[in-house]
């Protein structure tokens, strides 16, 4: 993406996010939009890893969950201010991701998938088991998000916060993608050996991207802990990890806006599919398969290619 179209894309996203609430009739719709923002933020981060660095992670919900539980526990049980808890969570997750990144990212393909899956599952087992701290399977409530005397209340307040944060995340991601680091990243996805030959320290970049995407997930998790009335371990489990990867691939790997579209689409889909009741999983699975068969590169890149072809 060139510099100009990057700003154009960001501007278009900003206008869309600013206009969206006008079109939402009630707080239920705003709630879905907020949840879509949460997923979009994580997916933009995860896409850096999957789409640009070519490294799959089937354990990303673990980082999201760690951030969420760090906030919930520190605020709920130890009375920390939410912002401080959020930063502490991000620091813990960042350090942890850094520590495990090197040995784990040495692995390739399905072995990497297995390793990240394992890490995610271990995190979710700990959260589920240490009920004395985390509330166990029934969950824990972190309470409202407040900074000083300002308290975030209501879906609309949350919408503005998360929309802003989404813009910031996209800005960060597109900067990373277009920077020299980003070019190295893309080289990685193409050919790791090639990148090394021209003097790119692939291991260092992979570690950096892994840490960045984990920290983004953690921050989103911390905020989610305050947004949701009851935080439960399902947010950190294997299914959530799979859901996140699906969103990224569905929208289009190596496309920041693809990650957003994928997250938004798959957040809304189950809400739309409720009319099918018991047939919901059949239709959801069918849509997932169909889209990936006919648009193997994902929604956004496929549609973009279609537009480009039409243009002279």
């Amino acid at each position: 993406m060139s510099g100009l179209s990057r700003w154009a894309g960001l501007g278009a996203l900003a206008i869309f996010l600013a206009a969206l609430p006008q079109a939402l009739p009630n707080n239920y719709y705003v709630d879905v939009a907020v949840l879509a923002c949460f997923n979009a933020i994580i997916c933009v981060g995860l896409n850096l890893l999957i789409g640009y660095a070519g490294q799959i992670s089937l354990g990303h919900a673990g980082f999201f969950g760690l951030g969420a539980y760090a906030s919930a526990v520190l605020v709920n049980s130890y009375g920390w201010p939410p912002l401080l808890a959020l930063l502490a969570g991000a620091a813990i997750v960042g350090l942890m991701a850094f520590a495990i990144a090197r040995p784990v990212l040495k692995l390739k393909g399905h072995y990497l998938a297995m390793a990240t899956l394992g890490i995610g599952i271990i995190i979710s087992i700990v959260i589920n088991t240490e009920a004395g701290i985390t509330g166990g399977p029934d969950g824990i409530a972190a309470g409202p998000f407040s900074i000083g005397s300002f308290k975030l209340a209501g879906e609309r307040d949350w919408y503005w916060l998360m929309a802003g944060l989404l813009l910031a995340t996209v800005w960060l991601a597109t900067n990373l993608v277009d920077s020299p680091v980003g070019r190295a990243l893309r080289a990685l996805h193409g050919s790791e050996v090639g990148a090394e030959v021209v003097g790119v320290d692939t291991a260092r970049y992979k570690v950096m991207v892994f840490v960045v995407s984990a920290v983004i997930a953690s921050v989103a998790g911390s905020l989610f802990a305050h947004y949701t009335p009851q935080l439960t371990p399902t947010k950190a489990d294997f299914f959530k990890s799979i859901e996140l990867v699906t969103m990224v691939v569905f929208g289009g790997m190596a496309s920041t806006f693809g990650a957003i579209v994928g997250a938004a689409f798959l957040t809304m889909l189950p809400q739309v599919l409720t009319v099918f009741e018991d047939y919901e999983p059949v239709i959801l699975g069918g849509i997932m398969m169909g889209t990936m068969i006919f648009m193997p590169k994902g929604l956004v890149p496929t549609i973009a290619a279609l537009f480009n072809r039409r243009r002279p």
């Binding site: 009630n26 707080n27 239920y28 709630d31 879905v32 949840l35 969950g139 879906e155 949701t228 009335p229 009851q230 935080l231 439960t232 399902t234 947010k235 189950p270 809400q271 409720t274 009741e277 018991d278 919901e280």
Partner: peptide
Amino acid sequence: DDAGAADKASSFVKRLIE
């Protein structure tokens, strides 16, 4: 159907109310 997930449940409760 919340499929046993608390976050889905809270979305659906908002939907029922709002």
